[in-house]
Amino acid sequence: MYTNNPYAQGGWSNSANTHSVNDGTWGTLLPQAPTYGALPSSTSGTPPSTLTFYFTEFSPDLLNCVVVGPQSKVYYKVIPGPPGLTYVQKPDNSSILCIEWQQHPMIEVREIVPRQAVGQWMLPAADGKSRIFEVKGRRYVWTAENNFISLYSVYPSPSDLNARISNGKPGSIVLEITTNAISAGLLEVAIASVVLLKCGRNID
Rank of each mutant, 00 (worst) to 15 (best):
D61P: 03
G81P: 08
I182D: 07
W121M: 03
A33T: 15
F55N: 07
S72I: 08
P105F: 02
Q71H: 15
P105L: 03
S13G: 12
G185F: 12
S159K: 14
T43S: 13
Y76R: 05
N147R: 08
S42A: 09
N64R: 13
G200H: 07
G84I: 04
T25D: 15
Q71C: 14
V88F: 03
Q89S: 11
D92N: 12
N162Y: 04
K136A: 06
T179P: 14
M106L: 03
L85Y: 09
G137S: 10
E111L: 02
W12H: 06
L197H: 06
N180R: 11
P158M: 08
F58D: 01
I173T: 07
I182F: 05
G27A: 14
Q71G: 13
W12V: 09
D23Q: 12
G119E: 01
R138D: 03
S159M: 15
Y7W: 13
L97P: 07
A163V: 03
I99L: 05
R164M: 07
V68C: 14
L51Q: 04
N5F: 08
G171N: 00
S13I: 03
P40S: 07
K136Y: 02
S157D: 07
Y140T: 00
K77I: 05
G128E: 06
S157P: 05
L161M: 09
C199R: 03
I99C: 00
Y36N: 12
N202K: 15
P91H: 04
W26I: 14
S59K: 14
F55Q: 00
N5A: 07
T56V: 11
F148A: 09
F55E: 02
E100G: 04
P91E: 00
S44A: 14
K169I: 09
H104Y: 10
A192Q: 05
C65H: 03
Q103C: 01
Q32A: 15
R201Q: 09
E145Q: 08
A181S: 06
A117C: 13
T178N: 03
P124V: 14
F148K: 11
E134S: 11
I173C: 00
V78K: 06
I173A: 00
